[in-house]
């Protein structure tokens, strides 16, 4: 009889423990999933934001995703990953479980790696930059974070850059093409006649990318990016490969062939636009390294150079900084007769 009290107490503790466990389902929260330790097919709902009671979400829509089940777990995968640093709430069996996916301590924040061209003087009819980011950048509303400042009075240049709903990004999402408003850079178009060119001769400007620009995980840059430059003369001369200087490598070596451009060229148009063939027209295997910010390209052959004559073949689309390519000016004067461009240079390895 004396043990009855203790037995009842033990049963009570057991029930309380069971109750406690039943109230504390074991959730694990990850960037791309929520895992609930359960042997049953228990689905739950996930909401954006922190809520203290299930009533708070009555008029809210839960996050779209899919459930899968195995013998030990129920797994929820949202249609897009949870955003790091944002607050979410799981609602399960009339209880709420708020959570945050923390940003790693040593998170690799988005930054600008290279700007092409990074020239300190740009022509008044300059057309486009390429911005190389360290990781894929959030394409949504990207132009809200990029602007041009007139350095002399520190004012923002209105309608300087071309905003596009789908920004022009490379396949890996890391290289952004940024156009100076082309309607203002092309002679005789309405915007050009009324507003003139975006860049005024001899003035100084700064391209700014504010630090609110985010990566594809929704995490902003840590520092803003700035590049200052001065505006030089209009460039209305087609680039010509005749002016290029070639440093010829030694025979029977795999030394790189160096092509010196003598002027800044457009990064995007140059990539993939060069090839080297031998006298019989066979393409020489190897790799090009394009360094437009230092005005040269290197070609490293896969095999040793043999004696003979080689030809550097260029695509006519190679542009200078004002959109003039080997074949035509960006805004071609139709009264001037077209001249076929020179697209090949030969060189001899002795």
């Amino acid at each position: 009889m004396k043990y009855i009290k203790e037995i009842v107490f033990s049963i009570l503790v057991l029930f309380m423990t069971l109750e406690m466990f039943s109230q504390s389902p074991r959730f694990s929260f990850y960037n791309d999933s929520i895992v609930l330790a359960t042997s049953k097919r228990n689905n739950f709902e996930v909401y954006r934001g922190t809520y203290t009671s299930p009533e708070d979400v009555i008029n809210k829509k839960h996050i779209i995703g899919s459930f899968s089940h195995n013998t030990k777990h129920t797994i929820f995968k949202p249609i897009v990953p949870f955003q790091k640093g944002n607050e979410y709430t799981v609602v399960f069996k009339n209880e709420v479980y708020p959570f945050v996916i923390a940003i790693d301590e040593n998170y690799d924040y988005l930054q600008v790696e290279v700007l092409y061209p990074n020239a300190s003087v740009l022509p008044a009819n300059f057309l486009k930059w390429y911005i190389q980011f360290s990781k894929p950048v959030n394409p949504s509303k990207i132009y809200d974070h990029i602007y041009l400042i007139n350095t002399s009075d520190n004012t923002k240049v209105d309608r300087a850059l071309l905003p596009l709903e789908t920004p022009l990004l490379s396949e890996d999402g890391k290289l952004l093409t940024l156009w100076i408003e082309p309607g203002r850079q092309k002679r005789d178009l309405g915007p050009n006649r009324e507003l003139g060119e975006v860049l005024i001769l001899n003035k100084s400007y700064t391209l700014i990318i504010d630090k609110e620009l985010k990566d594809t995980q929704g995490i902003a840059m840590q520092e803003k990016y700035m590049h200052s430059f001065k505006v030089g003369n209009f460039d209305r001369i087609k680039p010509s490969i005749i002016s290029w200087k070639i440093d010829v490598p030694k025979v029977n070596t795999r030394e790189a062939l160096r092509i010196n451009f003598q002027e800044y060229l457009d990064y995007g148009s140059l990539k993939g636009a060069l090839e080297i063939v031998n006298e019989s027209g066979t393409i020489i295997d190897g790799d090009f390294t394009i360094n437009v910010n230092q005005n040269f390209a290197l070609f490293k052959p896969a095999q040793d150079w043999g004696k003979g004559t080689y030809i550097l073949k260029c695509d006519s689309i190679i542009e200078d900084l004002a959109g003039n390519n080997l074949e035509r000016l960006f805004d071609r004067d139709v009264t001037v007769k077209k001249i076929d461009p020179i697209l090949e240079i030969s060189f001899v390895i002795q």
Partner: peptide, 28 residues
């Protein structure tokens, strides 16, 4: 020639008279 950077962003698509037409912006 090495990998080209050229990439096409489709800007519009329409259908008419048995043809699908599309316009695109190039990044280079």
């Amino acid at each position: 020639r090495g990998r080209s950077l050229r990439n096409l962003a489709i800007s519009d698509v329409r259908y008419a008279d048995g043809k699908v037409m599309l316009s695109g912006l190039s990044n280079t």
